[in-house]
Amino acid sequence: TASRAAVRLPRPASPAQPVPAGARLAVPGISPFTTPNRDFYRVDTALVVPKVDANRWRLRLHGTGVREELTLTLRDLMARRTVERDITLACVSNEVGGPYVGNARWLGVPLADLLREAGVRPPSEGGSADQLVARSVDGMTIGTPVEDVMDGRDALLAFGMNGEPLPFEHGFPVRMVVPGLYGYVSACKWIESIELTTFDAYDAYWVPRGWAAEAPVKTQSRIDTPRPFGRPAAGTVMVAGVAWAQHRGVRRVEVRVDDGPWQEARLAAEDTRDTWRQWTYPWEAAPGRHTLTVRATDGTGATQPERRTATMPDGAQGWHSVVVTVEGGE
Rank of each mutant, 00 (worst) to 15 (best):
V177N: 08
M150W: 00
E164M: 06
L181E: 10
G171C: 15
F168A: 13
D154I: 00
L181I: 06
M176K: 00
T141C: 03
T198S: 13
R175C: 15
E195T: 14
G183F: 03
V178D: 03
N162F: 07
L166V: 12
D148R: 12
T198D: 01
Y202A: 04
W190Q: 11
M176W: 01
L157M: 09
L181W: 10
P145M: 11
D154V: 05
E147Q: 14
P165N: 09
P167R: 10
E169I: 10
G180D: 05
Y202P: 01
Y182N: 12
P173E: 11
F172W: 14
G152H: 00
P179W: 05
Y205W: 08
P173T: 12
P167V: 09
C188F: 00
V146F: 05
S186A: 15
P167H: 09
L196Q: 00
N162R: 09
L166I: 11
T144S: 12
D154T: 10
Y184W: 13
F159M: 06
G183L: 02
F199H: 05
R175E: 13
W206K: 07
V174G: 13
F159Q: 07
Y182C: 10
P145Q: 14
D148K: 10
A204D: 12
A187S: 13
Y182Q: 10
E147K: 02
G143K: 07
I191S: 03
A155L: 09
G180I: 02
Y182D: 10
G171D: 14
C188T: 11
Y184H: 15
H170L: 15
V146T: 13
W190M: 11
R175L: 14
T198L: 04
V149N: 04
E164C: 02
M161E: 14
G183Y: 02
V146H: 01
V177G: 09
D148V: 13
Y184V: 08
E164V: 11
Y182A: 10
D151E: 04
S186D: 07
E164A: 14
H170M: 15
P165D: 08
E164D: 06
D200N: 12
P165R: 05
M176V: 11
P179E: 04
D203Q: 13
